[in-house]
Amino acid sequence: MAAISRDEVANLARLARITMSDDELDHLAGEMDVILGAVARVQEVASADVAPTSHPLAVNNVTREDVVLPSLTPTEALSGAPATDEERFKVPQILGEA
């Protein structure tokens, strides 16, 4: 049985905010199944007594001094924006009203 179904891949694409064509989904579902089959072997050695490592350095809550430093001007910050309005990022509607 496949480790992952085409419907599950479609749901993941929805969660990841990527539109996918039927062809893309068909192709990716097959590939995901093969890849998951290969990477699942991490479970062979991941016993309960092994602590997880999320990061090579054991650093926590690194903060800098709370002093004001120069930062981007509004013009610089908006320089790469697809659309702007005055000194703001202009985005498509988010609340369902045209």
Binding site: L15, A40, V42, Q43, V45, P52, T53
Partner: peptide, 19 residues
């Protein structure tokens, strides 16, 4: 990273990282 699979996949991979 999705719930239900996190421990089996990402969680196990983090343990391998320790090993």
């Amino acid at each position: 990273l999705s719930s239900g699979y996190y421990d089996a996949y990402y969680g196990s991979a983090q343990k391998v990282r320790t090993l």
